[in-house]
Design a protein around this nucleic acid. Structure first.
Lengths: 129, 129
DNA sequence: TAGGGTAGGAACCAAAAGTGTAGTACGCAC
DNA sequence: GTGCGTACTACACTTTTGGTTCCTACCCTA
């Protein structure tokens, strides 16, 4: 029983066409979801605050992404039913566990971002001559 | 110095508009990159084999994504300069380290996929009444 | 000599994603 | 009573993404 693939492959073969994880990858791969998860975990809970904090997100995408996260059970929407409206978004246990699973990824980004930028510059140099 | 945010937040504040990690998130968030990273790590190295393996990817997206990964220094393209063409794609050290950073994410997907599906069903139930 | 495999490039088109603007309905401060 | 803030929704619009199809150029097999 030799190991011909790296350790991190695990049992997640599922990434073929019918793979269930496609849905998850779609969810987290939509540019805003991870950011939102991050800032909500940082303690920003309200619509307006999230929008100001993230910078670049439109109200539409904010609402849409929050709904998607809520629908997947990653954040909880608490509507205080007041007027003017007061709504807060909090991570669920599931959302927090996903956050934990993403720790190494954020760490990698912090550590290796420079390497990626350098690689891109080198690549551009090789191909733009 | 109290901790008011979860451990996994780290120092990655960067996810604001000007944040460098946006580029990385864009890269890995494009539906095919992670899959490609995964199957290359599993030992599938050639264009045709990758296309057959992943199922659902078009030649265009395959090439495009491979170029993006190559440009970012995550995979290496080895062209054997033969005819008919023979090209192999391998992970670089950087690509392999990203793979390792993604281990917990794949693990989370495996563990929690059912929970997400259940949450979605519940949400749909609540909102489709 | 026709067809399949090798690894792509280019052009075109459809679909999806995302943006901006406007409007709802009300409270509060000036 | 004017305008800002709260949390949205709806519509039209543009941009991006991805898919399809056709093309190169050569090898091997039947």
């Amino acid at each position: 029983m030799k190991k011909e693939v790296p350790d991190w492959i695990g049992q997640v073969d599922p990434c073929e066409a019918n793979c269930p994880s496609r849905d998850i990858l779609d969810l987290i791969g939509d540019r805003w979801s991870l950011l939102l998860l991050l800032v909500i975990a940082q303690g920003v809970h309200r619509n307006g605050a999230l929008k100001r904090r993230i910078g670049g997100i439109s109200q539409k995408m904010l609402t849409q992404t929050l709904r998607a996260l809520e629908a997947s059970g990653l954040v909880e929407r608490r509507d205080f039913q007041t007027v003017p409206p007061h709504v807060e978004y909090h991570l669920t246990a599931l959302g927090a566990s996903l956050g934990e699973a993403l720790t190494p990824l954020f760490g990698w980004i912090e550590r290796e971002f420079d390497a990626v930028v350098a690689a891109r510059a080198a690549f551009a140099g090789r191909h733009a001559v």
